[in-house]
Design a protein around this nucleic acid. Structure first.
Lengths: 107, 107
DNA sequence: TTAATATGCAACTTTTTGGTTGCTTATTGT
DNA sequence: ACAATAAGCAACCAAAAAGTTGCATATTAA
């Protein structure tokens, strides 16, 4: 399908999903879907789709308890984003020394 | 339209655009569009669209010289991604913190 | 046991995205 | 001057994404 970093970046590239993720992170506890979706003005089913995208990217886990499904944020996959970005740090201007090192290594 | 972080994340969420950006970064010099697109098996016009998306996110700059348009990577906007991610670092460090607490209590 | 609640699933619509082809225009090399 | 090159623009297409409505099902509360 898609590689991991693509799934993660696609997941967080949508503002609603970033809000959703953020809400779950600061909640610090698992929340049932209805409670999560109450904070947004799109339908519960719309939220469910976004949650599935986040789950597929590993950014949340969902566990069932009775008739409720609890969503919990998992920040760990964002390490992949951090790693991807970190390669390019040497190319933005506050890191000119590292850019010099990179250019040296090219030869 | 879209806020900055969304534009940047959307831009890098596509694998082709990440490749494109990477090729321009390691080229270290501005490249004309045709030369860039030669490395990909989609049409020049397709590449042009991707380049526009990257430009719109501030990840490349394009300057015209004669009949050619030179593309140059700009890594700086990725700082925004780094900043966005950095907020969540404390949430994936949780286990390490708990390990730290455990080790503290042992002494 | 019956009503209310939490949710999933399927079908459908609209918009966006990733890509194409065809054509025009401007610049450059011979 | 003319052919080749570099590129933009517009129209089009298919697939994916974002969101909806309607309905079925399981669990819980009264």
């Amino acid at each position: 399908m898609q590689d991991n970093i693509t799934k993660i970046l696609k997941a967080i590239s949508d503002p609603t999903r970033r809000e959703l993720f953020h809400a779950l992170v600061i909640a610090a506890t698992a929340l049932p879907i209805t409670q999560v979706s109450a904070q947004f003005n799109i339908t519960r089913q719309g939220i469910t789709k976004h949650l599935k995208t986040l789950e597929n990217a590993g950014l949340i886990t969902i566990t069932t308890s009775g008739r409720e499904r609890f969503c919990k944020a998992e920040a760990a996959p964002l390490q992949e984003v951090k790693n991807w970005v970190s390669f390019y740090e040497k190319f933005w201007d506050t890191k000119l020394d590292q850019l010099g090192d990179f250019l040296d290594q090219k030869e």
